[in-house]
Design a protein around this nucleic acid. Structure first.
Lengths: 211, 211
DNA sequence: CTCACCATCCCCAATTTGGGTAGTTTTTAA
DNA sequence: TTAAAAACTACCCAAATTGGGGATGGTGAG
């Protein structure tokens, strides 16, 4: 039995979902509210397994409510249920700790499937959302410029220390080298990165994910 | 009709899936191979809508095959189909442009659902995968420490230059200050950030998103 | 009238940087 | 397999930059 609390301002949708859950084996709708202004108090009262949260509601938005709920009850699963599929809202929801993002669908079985997935400890995203999340993910991590800079093992090692803010002496100590050798490597690093100071090298190393 | 090409080294699974697709309305299995060594050539031959790709196969891994296919046919949808749910493989798959990541399931309907989602332009992740992707996403963007460091206007300005790798002289020039004043500000910045060198300040500034 | 911020300047020691040389080991290529 | 190239180690030196200390005014806000 999965206990659910619903926040949805549209009355007819709220009632439809209530009817659906009331007649679905394994689902128990503990509460259905038209706004999320007292969401945290409602959660405290019902202690639901899963919260189904609309985004656009009078007063507190679903995203804000999500953040407040997660701050107090991080274990409660919150499923965003909306018609919006813009990157900004998706981003906020995922970063806010949502367990899923489901587009409103004429078929309530979709939502129920998502609720079950979430209750099992998984996450559920509608395909249209998943594709955007994966794109955002790619944009973050796939570096654009394949400006492959070839560093030798020692050079990479020294650069890593440099990025940690260490001085020549500390690097020498950490890598069991003499300061002179550290000096030697750093000169080469500067040449390869086309820079001529430690701060520049650090920013370039971070930018190009060389470390 | 969705045309599918399958790469799967396990013979019995490959045959089961073939049987399943052959008897599924709307599915057309154009090819089924036991390794992905010539994946690109196979794709060129069949021009499938969706590729179902195992990860662990003799020779080329599914992840490598994905990358090669995407490099030549970026429009072809590739669905990773595996038992692995470690973060590294998921990460590689998503960054490699996979349209989905489906865990092998005893119910072939799951795969078929994912294929349909992908063919409609969406993406599909098994719940256990989705939860990991969302966690990785959060870890990337949600900054942990609200260690609010109060910098004055000039200090922030100077720090910004520092992060760009500029020397005292260049900063003085850029901000229309004397080197001495730059020196003065940098001293204060170091105090506030609890560091004592430019590289350290740079990494800290980037970490804490002070610039 | 303080106090915090901004700006300028000074000194000095330590560090960093850029230019060499030179021997050893490891890798690569012929 | 051998020869050449690259990498690693270490050192010297001189110039430049940086880091830490302090001092002196001029603002503008509370």
């Amino acid at each position: 039995m999965i206990s659910i609390v619903l926040f949805e301002d549209n009355k007819s949708l709220r009632q439809s979902l209530k009817l659906y859950f009331d007649n679905t084996e394994g689902a128990y709708l503990a509460g259905a509210y038209e706004d999320a202004n007292d969401a945290v108090a409602k959660i405290r009262k019902h202690c639901p397994d899963v919260v189904l949260m609309d985004i656009q509601m009078p007063g507190l938005s679903g995203i804000e409510a999500l953040q407040r709920i997660k701050a107090v009850y991080p274990e409660t699963k919150v499923l965003i249920h909306t018609i919006f599929e813009d990157e900004h809202r998706i981003f906020s929801a995922v970063c806010g700790g949502a367990s899923g993002y489901v587009l409103k669908s004429p078929d309530p079985d979709d939502v129920w499937q998502a609720i079950q997935d979430v209750h099992k400890g998984g996450a559920h995203m509608s395909p249209a959302i998943a594709v955007k999340v994966m794109q955002m993910f790619q944009n973050q991590f796939v570096q654009s410029q394949p400006t492959y800079i070839e560093l030798t093992g020692r050079e990479r090692e020294v650069l890593t220390c440099l990025v940690k803010g260490m001085s020549y002496k500390m690097i020498a100590d950490a890598c069991s080298l003499s300061v002179h050798t550290v000096h030697y490597h750093i000169k080469h690093i500067y040449e390869k990165l086309h820079v001529n100071s430690a701060p520049e090298a650090v920013v370039k190393a971070i930018e190009q994910k060389l470390v």
